[in-house]
Design a protein around this nucleic acid. Structure first.
Lengths: 205, 205
DNA sequence: ATTAACCCGTACACCGGTGTTCAGATTCGC
DNA sequence: GCGAATCTGAACACCGGTGTACGGGTTAAT
């Protein structure tokens, strides 16, 4: 963790003092943690949640848009990182998919709410592309691999299948939030659903 | 159409003048049509879209909350009405489901965006119950029927299956909006997906 | 220890959205 | 045609959120 931040600091640009870096991290963390609620993504709340004054927040992120952008990029980086750790390109695609579904839907959910906020403030096109490349792209690649090996169905547009997987991961998080699903169930349920929907031979009679 | 409005007027309460009723209808229509965009649900925009002055809007709906509530109830009524016309309780459940998926996802989408707006302004509990009863309830009943006849799987919580169907209907609308799906495809795709996911025997090996 | 970088509270201007008021024009119902 | 109901534009107060400015206190780096 410290390594990555070190790297970010080094890569990004100018040399910051330790306390400044600490503030930035706290703000970004708060922004990520704060988003999952409703549309309430206001600077005041985030500053408070980060234990930082509003003025300090504006010192690092001069505008709301800048903060949303930074938070979203960080969230996407975290998601991509989590996917990488799962080695989705190894083993049978069905098993890789199962691994992903059981572990990542929690991260994806946080990510999604933030993305929703972002899509109202940032320019759609550029952002959408970035998102598709780093998050949906991983799912897409996995599904494509499964189709190549004959594990997954090919009678529906791949984009639709990707959207389905992504959406169902979010639904799991939503229902867990609403108490309609227990944390223990969620992984099994979403995995069973997606696998049975993606398997070759699922096509209707 | 005129009949229903007549009925509403009669049922609701006091006797309004024709032009007043016309305004109310225009406002409600505009509210329904206006919601599907983003979170932009402001009184000013709706008044303009309805071809009515802002003051008039406030004369009929004293507060934003009141308007959201009225619009949502109307949307739910329309959805329920559409479901009723489909005779979901007749014939094999699989066919009824197919009928529903092919025809109603468009209505459901408009409904959902409005619901999203509403969930931020109205009290969650009461509203959620009303929604569950009039919209999700129909899907739930249909799935239950299919389970009784042995057509649908029973190894997953019914609430989860209902959520899945509802969510996928919305995803279809979303992808159509984004140009990732054509209007011609959408019905087939969503139907094929849901049916193959719900069929008994879909359980993973 | 010194200095520059950083953080803080307060206060202010600004904007968009909400709701209200009023006086005058229009239109429906009888 | 008359009267009451309705619609309208304009103006205003209010609120929450954004972004800025200032002066003084604190902390990290050398």
């Amino acid at each position: 963790m410290t390594d990555r931040r070190q790297a970010e600091r080094g890569a990004a640009g100018r040399q910051r003092r330790a306390d400044a870096q600490r503030s930035i991290d706290a703000i970004l963390d708060a922004a990520l943690a704060c988003a999952p609620s409703d549309g309430g993504f206001n600077m005041t709340a985030i500053a408070r949640a980060a234990g930082v004054s509003r003025v300090t927040l504006y010192a690092h992120f001069p505008t709301r848009e800048a903060l949303v952008d930074a938070a979203l990029r960080r969230a996407m980086a975290l998601t991509a990182e989590a996917f990488d750790r799962l080695r989705l390109d190894e083993g049978p695609a069905t098993e890789a998919l199962d691994r992903m579904l059981r572990s990542s839907w929690r991260i994806v959910e946080r990510h999604r709410n933030l993305y929703q906020v972002a899509s109202r403030t940032l320019s759609p096109s550029e952002l959408h592309a970035y998102h598709a490349e780093h998050v949906l792209g991983q799912i897409d690649a996995l599904i494509a691999r499964g189709q190549d090996t004959g594990e997954f169905r090919t009678d529906l547009p791949r984009e639709w299948l990707v959207g389905t997987v992504y959406t169902l991961m979010h639904l799991a998080a939503e229902q867990l939030n609403a108490g309609q699903l227990t944390a223990a169930q969620a992984g099994d349920v979403v995995s069973a659903t997606v696998v049975s929907l993606l398997r070759r031979g699922s096509a209707a009679a």
